[in-house]
């Protein structure tokens, strides 16, 4: 009997922990699916998707699209620019290339807020105080890590494979698109997804760059929604939060699958 005592204690402790962990999520979910939400943790009397409908229409819907455009745009631009720069960095013997890369990363360690003012004025001068500006600015900020990651992935592609393709008549462009990129697809996916979630969560830059409601992404919209409509609309807010969080969760699962399958492919030497 004595041996049961610790496990019972453990069970109680774990239950306690679970309640603490789960209650915010259950509050979120219960309120989101409750059209008559009051902000209390209670079993809803009615279940419906009204809150979600509200959260994807009108302003909120536009914000979702804005977020998607910024996140997908940043991720794609980061990958394209990153590949174009990382491949030569990986293959050409440029003196001091590693020092150069790490210096870039070091600069990126500075808080983004530190470079916000020059970024803002640059964008203002170039007429880029819009979504495109946000995408370009985020790409610039992403680039050091993107470069470093992609360079390391390209380094793992054996040079003999490229030589073999060259002897067989492939141009440099064909070597990159048919050999190097397919073999680095796991790395490229990682970079794309990280850039995507990073841009999706970005708050400060879009807030400052896009000062009209129509251009706000969800991160800014969530912040703005708190003070609107006099009273706080808990049902709308919770549904909005869930939609806001969904891509990050989705990306996590996509990433995990890719990590498992993709990397194994990279490790194989012909």
């Amino acid at each position: 009997m004595e041996s049961n005592a610790p496990s019972r204690l453990t069970a109680i402790a774990l239950t306690f922990m679970a309640v603490i962990w789960i209650s915010p999520f259950s509050w979120l979910i219960l309120n989101a699916f409750n059209p008559l939400s009051t902000g209390q943790l209670e079993i809803p009397r009615a279940v419906g998707l009204d809150n979600f409908a509200q959260a994807v229409s009108g302003n909120a819907g536009r914000q979702f699209i804005n977020s998607m455009m910024i996140a997908a745009g940043t991720a794609t631009l980061s990958v394209i620019v990153g590949i174009s720069a990382a491949y030569p960095l990986s293959r050409l013997k440029i003196p001091g290339r590693n020092a150069f890369l790490w210096t870039l990363v070091l600069l990126r360690m500075l808080p983004a807020a530190g470079v916000l003012v020059p970024l803002y004025f640059t964008a203002q001068r170039m007429g880029l105080l819009n979504q495109l500006g946000v995408i370009i600015a985020l790409t610039v900020l992403n680039l050091p890590f993107t470069l470093l990651l992609l360079k390391n992935f390209f380094d793992t592609v054996p040079i003999e494979l490229e030589e073999a393709a060259y002897v067989e008549g492939a141009s440099l462009f064909q070597i990159v698109t048919k050999i190097v990129l397919p073999m680095s697809r796991a790395g490229i996916a990682v970079v794309w997804f990280f850039s995507f979630t990073g841009a999706w969560n970005e708050f400060l830059l879009p807030l400052i760059f896009a000062r009209v409601q129509d251009a706000f992404p969800m991160s800014v919209g969530l912040y703005a929604a708190f003070g609107q409509q006099g009273a706080i609309n808990y049902g709308f807010l919770t549904a909005f939060s869930i939609i806001y969080a969904a891509p990050a969760v989705g990306v996590y699962f996509l990433l995990r699958r890719n990590m498992n399958t993709g990397f194994a492919g990279v490790g194989v030497k012909g």
Binding site: E160, E163, A164, V167, E168, I179, M183, V268, K269, G270
Partner: peptide, 19 residues
């Protein structure tokens, strides 16, 4: 350039395209 030399090469590591 190599492709126009009419040669084919077999590498030590085989250099097969793994994908």
């Amino acid at each position: 350039p190599s492709p126009q030399r009419g040669i084919a090469m077999v590498f030590q590591s085989y250099a097969l395209y793994p994908h």
